[in-house]
């Protein structure tokens, strides 16, 4: 029974990793940009929510609604004025600029909030649990997983049902031809990063509610997100969810055997998938 419980906890944890990964996947899918600052942006989102909660004395769930548009604007400006200038055939500029951004952001957060670990205030809802038969499920992990599924459904709807989604797909396929059709790739990229940061904010909410965070944990979140994206196959959002679940289950199983193996077993699951299916479980036709 304990094993079933462990696996279910792992699946739910995978929801959190899928939330980390969706933003990364979205940005890569549209502009082939790997944002090495992604993890630090999640941590920044968590601090933004914390500041709003502390200043306004509101619940984190309300604060996230204020944080989302702020992060959208931040992402839009960041992409439009900084990251767009690095896009091109050469992979060095985007990698090195986002790496510089990651280090700068991490240390700015350290300077602003010190290295002490923080946590978003929890209430009865966040510590509640449901008994389903012999298994007890926390409401928080269920909410996280539900949000991940909603985000992915929402992104798929956005991609395949809206004009913006069509512009996303067109720009992703061929930015020059798309721009002949009246689409401005620069703005499309900026919008995509804005949306990615909205998802980052949702991920940040659950990160801050479930566990402690400090300015240094960004890179590890980036790595989990990256692993989920690669396991799922580049460009497949449902694959990303599955990738998150695989990492989550591997981590909880590893931790059940020996707490020191938690992180390691997640990485090893990733390497095994890379060994057997180098292009991930649900690869796209090209790239």
């Amino acid at each position: 029974m304990i094993w079933i419980d462990t696996i279910i906890q792992g699946i739910l944890l995978g929801g959190l990793y899928a939330l980390f990964a969706s933003g990364l996947s979205l940005v890569f899918g549209i502009m082939r940009l790997v944002n090495l600052a992604h993890g630090d942006l999640i941590v920044m989102g968590a601090y933004l929510i914390l500041v709003l909660v502390t200043l306004l004395g509101i619940s984190p769930f309300i604060a996230v609604l204020i944080a989302m548009p702020l992060m959208f604007v931040f992402g839009y400006v960041l992409q439009k004025h900084l990251l767009n200038r690095t896009l091109g055939d050469d992979i060095l500029p985007p990698l090195l600029v986002t790496f510089g951004l990651s280090i700068a952001l991490q240390n700015a957060l350290l300077e602003g909030f010190s290295a002490d670990s923080q946590r978003l205030p929890t209430n009865a809802l966040t510590t509640a649990s449901l008994d389903i038969g012999p298994i007890t499920l926390g409401v928080m992990p269920l909410l996280t997983f539900g949000s991940a599924v909603l985000v992915i459904v929402g992104l798929n709807q956005l991609f395949y049902r809206t004009e913006l989604g069509r512009a996303f797909r067109a720009t992703s396929d061929d930015a020059i031809t798309a721009s002949l059709m009246g689409i401005k790739p620069a703005n499309i990229f900026a919008t995509a990063t804005g949306i990615a940061l909205v998802i980052v904010t949702i991920a940040a909410l659950y990160l801050g509610l479930r566990a402690n965070f400090d300015p240094n944990i960004g890179p590890a979140r980036l790595i989990y997100a990256f692993e989920a994206v690669i396991i799922g196959g580049l460009g497949s959002l449902w694959g990303t969810l599955l990738g998150g679940v695989i990492i989550g289950v591997a981590q909880t199983l590893g931790a059940a055997i020996n707490p020191e193996w938690q992180i390691l077993s997640g990485h090893i699951a990733f390497l095994l998938v890379l060994l057997i299916r180098p292009r991930g479980l649900f690869p796209r036709a090209s790239d």
């Binding site: 900084l82 200038r85 510089g100 990651s102």
Partner: peptide, 10 residues
Amino acid sequence: LGVLAIAIML
């Protein structure tokens, strides 16, 4: 250092 690296890259 981070900001300097970004500026130089751009």
